[in-house]
Amino acid sequence: MFSVIVRRIFSMIPTLLGLSLVVFLIVKAIPGDPAQLLLGDKANAQSLKALRTELGLDSPIFVQYGKFVYRTFIEGDLGRSIASSEPIWDIIKVKFPATVELAIFATFLAILIGIPLGILAADRKGSWLDSLAISTSIFGVSIPVFWLGLILIWIFGLNLGVLPMSGRMDIIFDYEPITGMVLIDSLLQSDLELWWSSFTHIILPGVTLSTIPLAFIARITRASMLEVLKEDYVRTARAKGLSKIKVVMKHALKSALPNIVTIVGLQLGALLAGAMITETVYSWPGIGTWILSSVHARDIPALEAGILLVALTYMIINLFVDIVLMIVDPRVRIT
């Protein structure tokens, strides 16, 4: 198993290089000149030319790509943002943990509710519970996120006043990041007030973001369980007189698990790419809003780094899913 993992890690390098070319070309293909955007309506030919030279936009495209690859992969330097002149690594260090924290929280919620819901629905196929699970999942995927977000803020933040409406923590806190994930850092710093503040702040965006993965997880769990519950060995287990819980949890769920793990991994990957709408509605300072604003500003170095980061995250999650699959499903280990 170990050698498989090592091989997989090495195979990520050429993928990443190929990807860098694609990312570089896509970013270049976005219409709009960053120099023009920086200078605004008042740009003239002379100031444009000077700025383009300053930003290195006037050298041939393959030279630019060469510099980009050398800088990123050999020197490990992501460059500076055109818009803010900040080192991009510093931006990522702050924004990515915020996205990771929210994504993990949302996925955790989705698993916690989605899997039991799927199991119950499969077990009582055709019952009201099953209908409830199916309609919940349809509701989950089809409800517009910005609307749900605003409604939740309106109910719990404004009218009931029980949860904060936006942001990551109360403004009174001066927070020094360690991992960048406030829920963890506050515990490391044994600051329970900060923990509570960040926990209450993550609930609404977390719930909003969890609706789609929850729906997928519930559906996949239900479908896989239905398939498995029909199998002979489950019938045998039942015939042996095992308790229902034991049959479902031990025999059926174990076989359905690979499908569920795969979908959880995919969903987590998607959430880690940053949830632009949820992040915007809740003023959550994550990677999604950053990439979006970088597109608006044609912030080329920021975009290149941002998209590569998202892609790398996907690859790592995929690898992780495969490892988990190897653990839960012995058949995968052989291939």
């Binding site: 605003l150 904060p164 409406m165 936006s166 915007t280 509605v281 809740y282 003023s283 300072p285």
Partner: peptide, 20 residues
């Protein structure tokens, strides 16, 4: 003085209504 960023118009409106 605290300058808070609340990019969504509706969220900002609700923060104002909630006197936050």
């Amino acid at each position: 003085l605290v300058f808070r960023s609340i990019p969504d118009n509706n969220t900002r409106l609700m923060e104002m209504m909630g006197q936050k």
